[in-house]
Amino acid sequence: MPSKETDKSNVGADLVFCLFLFAMVVVFFIMAIGYKSVTRHAPMVVLIPLAFLLLLQIALAIKKLIGIKDSGGTLSLQVKIERKNLWRGGQLFLAMITLIIMIYFCGQLFGIALFLILFLRFFSRESWILALSLGIGVTVGLHLLFEKILGIPLYPGAIYKYVSGLIGI
């Protein structure tokens, strides 16, 4: 059964999410006004009801928050478990950004191998043997699947491009 704190946190998060979406809808609306009449027809048909739906959702969330406050709860939106989840989610988000940067510099195959080995060893705390075997195994699998079977070339990486340009490959 969800606790009062978790409910409160969800309602708060819902309110923040709706406000963010509403701000986005307002920006889109202002942009759409500047388009030709035919171009803005469909977006307007969606934007106007969407704005009303969001306002309704915001009103519902505020009403719920006031209800929780009246029933004796505090309005603090952060609870321990949410903080921990946020931290773990942030970790993975940063890991994905790192993966993209690694792929950019080292190429898809070497970047992925390096990322998997480091991630499995230091984030997931797996043994070196498992990290190395999975890192290399997955990379070989992706190479076979994309490049050999499907004939889709993978990105070789900025370093490879730079070095191959230098030595004239």
Partner: peptide
Amino acid sequence: ILVPILLT
């Protein structure tokens, strides 16, 4: 283990 592999 599954998450990083599938993410790549």
